[in-house]
């Protein structure tokens, strides 16, 4: 099916900040494209990561696992992961798995960028 793909866009901002914007379905079949983009960003020293999931229409446990792994890796290098714009089924998945207690969630991209800039 055509909608079973995940498109990830990477935009570097100032200093160590990077914005990863994902759209489509984030599941075990598509999770690799986000993993590659994240590896690339971390490899370039971009460890203050905003992950915009506002256009993600589905997220299974593989997707959640990748997000948790990214959270951990960013923290390990002194950076941070902020998950922006989680809504609908993605927000539900984060809440059901209780991962909303672990991850930093922001309702908007602006709020997430503000948080990474101010070092939160």
């Amino acid at each position: 099916m055509n909608d079973d793909i995940l498109v990830v866009r990477t935009e570097d901002a100032e200093a160590r900040i990077v914005v990863l914007t994902a759209s489509g379905e984030l599941d075990r079949d598509t999770v690799k494209s986000l993993a590659v983009a994240a590896d690339d960003a971390l490899g370039r020293g971009r460890d203050r990561i905003v992950l915009d999931v506002g256009r993600v229409t589905f997220c299974d446990s593989s997707g959640l696992s990748l997000i948790v792994g990214l959270h951990r890796r960013a923290a390990a290098s002194g950076g941070v992961l902020r998950v922006a714009c989680a809504q609908g089924i993605v927000l539900t998945a984060l809440q059901i798995s209780n991962l909303d207690r672990l991850l930093y969630l922001d309702p908007t991209l602006e709020a997430a960028l503000h948080a990474v800039r101010s070092g939160e």
């Binding site: 209780n98 991962l99 672990l102």
Partner: peptide, 14 residues
């Protein structure tokens, strides 16, 4: 009785 998934807590260092 809510808590994080098994395996997340230790691995995430929280």
């Amino acid at each position: 009785g809510v808590r994080l998934p098994l395996g997340v807590a230790s691995s995430a260092g929280v």
